[in-house]
Amino acid sequence: MAEQVTRKPYVREVPRMLWFLRHPRYMRYMAREFSCLFIGAYTLMLVVGLKRLAEGPDAWAGFLAALGSPGAIVFHLFALAFSAYHSITWFRLTPKAMPVQIGDTFVADRVISGAHYAGWALVSLVVLWLAGAF
């Protein structure tokens, strides 16, 4: 090598793990991604519930009793918040993923998102009603 290259490019340091603490936008992104932990754990809990249901009335009663433990209540509250955040961000993104064109114009984002929010509310109410929660 005839000449040493003296150029010193600026390399911006990025923390390997906690980079998302640097900006609120990154933190909202991570909050959205962390929702998968709660949705996944909750679904696995449902699988355990099916196991207890298959084992008979006593096992099912034990499962219902376990749902009332303080840890289960706290988990449910976090899971509810994170899963709702997933729903909100998912429907907010829907018009970007599925733009609807009518003639020469695109349907406004808020119309597509709004229709999904309304559908979400309707589905939730119907499930609550069918399950006899009212």
Binding site: L80, S83, W90, F91, S124, V127, A133
Partner: peptide
């Protein structure tokens, strides 16, 4: 997005 929050609400 449609279903999980209400399922959580049921078991809550």
């Amino acid at each position: 997005a449609f279903l999980t929050p209400v399922l959580i609400l049921l078991t809550l």
